[in-house]
Write a protein that binds this DNA or RNA. Structure first.
Length: 561
DNA sequence: TTAGGGTTAG
């Protein structure tokens, strides 16, 4: 940088024969400066009499290589105002990248309009940048519109669109587009595969994930660090932890994300000691843990009931100078709450140096409910309602607290308040992959084409379950209605629909794998145990938090969840 | 000089 300063000074103090050679020399300095000190490069840009668009682009790119900053947008606005130099496709690609990184939706929309007005809207790079910008802003349909309007689609465009669907959890759309891509004759590469594998991980679609793994091998697609990590994650999220470890062990190079995937995988499977063993091995391999690694370690301790160990990792994390994030605090609160230390958890929360987020308060309320500390739970839950008056979860939590205390009057009042404010609960949704398609079931769902068969089968299953001596845990149902109706409501739970569909559509030896968006209720947990015994089926349920593997009437979580 | 990728508490 010092040499660049000297050259800059030399140019300024030595007169040049022409303006263009002066501009050229300064632009050269700017080019080098953009890599070392982009703010200096920006100042230089403003000193150049008639900078070319290349100089602007260089400074924009310099900013993109640093931490996210709106500077490229400011530069673009300046360009638009001055009308000179004119933006080119590179400028638009850079500014759109900036808009997708921040993200800055309104600004990106303006850039889109500008792209069309300036006649650059049909350029492949600009379109792909736009498509990526929209999907990063979670406006997938707008991204899809750009994609559909493209006259030419290469592997980058297809991958961007598939990745866009995968990120927002539109798994079937991502997989469908992957199939269309193959039909169109564009060959997928490593990046495409990462997006599709991630979609399978989200959906818990193990068979498809396995097929993709074979596809990678068959097509000779390079299993680089990202692909391998995506595979480890996919197998772990699909409940096939052994295979996840096989892929992980075979990786020639493992970075912090790869180690974290494996550690988190063990944590959600309930194998806390394996997760901690992995963390120790990571240290031996001299790979620096990142904040996600520690989330994995702390959540492993929480799910394994390892309070002392969790505290130890927490202290060592602080000793290493790692700044705890809200997630880390959340893990610690969860650790204490799961170990029935609600009072200690409360003390921990109130002593936090940052204001706890609603999720942390909710963890506390659940813990107070479990410990039958209803007054304390009510106090925190009411605060939560003030903090987040539009979040249905808080109302559900408070009403479930009242239900546990059999306070039906207060429970009804909360439900009424919810109705009056027009707040709708997020419905339970469970999915199961059958023959390459992910079937979704929402609580009380009748929209599935085979709904009638499923319903008939559910009746048969419920009769068998009840005949085996299962006593329904009615408090799982929040409505203050008669017991018969409560019982019916329990059999409407989405995971039961998905399990019934799995029993109907798969052979006896096939493991039934369900993914649920919420936590499994106590009664469904008991019922699934019973079904696994009565139907001699292994059933694996991934709920919002972790895995439950039901075999012959026993769950892998040992009822600690 | 430009576009697409892997891990994240409850």
């Amino acid at each position: 940088m010092r040499v660049l300063n000297q050259i800059h000074a030399h140019i300024l103090t030595h007169p040049r024969p022409s303006l263009s050679s002066y501009t050229f020399s300064l632009s050269k300095v700017l080019c080098f400066a953009a890599y070392r000190n982009v703010h200096y490069a920006k100042q230089l840009l403003f000193q150049i009499p008639c900078p070319k668009i290349f100089a602007y682009n260089t400074v924009m790119r310099g900013f993109l290589q640093q931490n996210p900053s709106p500077e490229p947008i400011f530069l673009f606005k300046r360009l638009v105002q001055m009308k000179f130099p004119r933006s080119n496709t590179f400028t638009l690609a850079f500014v759109l990248k900036c808009c997708s990184m921040l993200p800055a939706f309104a600004e990106g929309r303006q850039v889109h309009k500008h792209a069309i007005a300036s006649g650059l809207g049909g350029n492949l790079f600009v379109q792909t940048s736009l498509l990526n910008f929209y999907t990063k802003c979670e406006e997938v349909e707008l991204g899809r519109k750009v994609f559909d309007e493209m006259s030419e689609r290469n592997v980058v465009a297809w991958s961007a669109m598939i990745g866009g669907y995968a990120r927002v959890g539109k798994v079937n759309e991502a997989l469908e587009l992957f199939r269309e891509m193959q039909k169109s004759g564009v060959e997928p590469d490593e990046v495409t595969m990462v997006s599709v594998i991630s979609a399978c991980a989200m959906a818990g679609a193990l068979d498809l994930g396995k097929w993709l793994h074979m596809f990678i091998d068959r097509k000779g697609i390079k299993s680089d660090l990202e692909v391998s990590t995506a595979l480890v994650n996919m197998y772990a999220k699909c409940g096939f932890i052994e295979k996840a470890q096989d892929v992980f062990d075979a990786m020639p190079v493992k970075d912090a994300k790869a180690w974290s995937s494996m550690i988190v995988g063990f944590a959600i499977t309930g194998l806390a000691n394996k997760a901690l063993e992995m963390f120790a091995r990571m240290g031996e391999a001299q790979v620096e843990p990142n904040h996600v690694t520690l989330i994995g370690v702390l959540s492993a301790c929480a799910h394994g009931g390892l309070v002392a160990e969790g505290r130890k990792y927490w202290s060592s994390m602080l000793d290493c100078g790692m700044e705890p994030s809200m997630e880390h605090y959340g893990c610690m609160v969860d650790l204490l709450c799961r170990a029935n230390q609600a009072e200690e958890a409360y003390e921990f929360v109130v002593s936090m140096p940052v204001f706890p987020n609603p999720a942390i308060w909710r963890t506390l309320v659940v813990s107070f409910k479990k410990s039958k500390m209803f007054d304390k739970g009510e106090e925190v839950a009411k605060q939560l309602l003030q903090l987040e008056p539009l979040n249905a979860e808080n109302y559900i939590l408070l009403s479930s607290l009242y239900a546990s205390a059999s306070d039906w009057v207060k429970m009804s009042a909360v439900r009424r308040q919810m109705r009056e404010r027009g707040i709708k609960a997020v419905p339970g949704c469970s999915s199961i992959e059958i023959n390459g398609h992910v079937h979704e079931f929402v609580m009380g769902d009748t929209s599935h084409p085979e709904a009638k068969d499923i319903r008939e089968f559910i009746c048969e299953v419920s009769e068998r379950v009840e005949a085996s001596g299962h006593e329904p845990w009615i408090a799982s149902v929040l409505q203050n209605v008669g017991n018969g109706e409560k019982l019916d409501a329990l059999w409407e739970h989405s995971e039961r629909l998905a399990i019934a569909y799995g029993l109907l559509k798969t052979k006896e030896y096939v493991t039934i794998r369900i993914v649920k968006n919420l936590r499994v209720c106590e009664d469904c947990h008991e019922v699934t145990k019973t079904i696994s015994r009565l139907y001699n089926r292994e059933i694996i349920v991934r709920d919002r938090i972790r895995f439950h593997k039901f075999v012959n009437g026993v769950c892998s979580c040992q009822d600690f969840w």
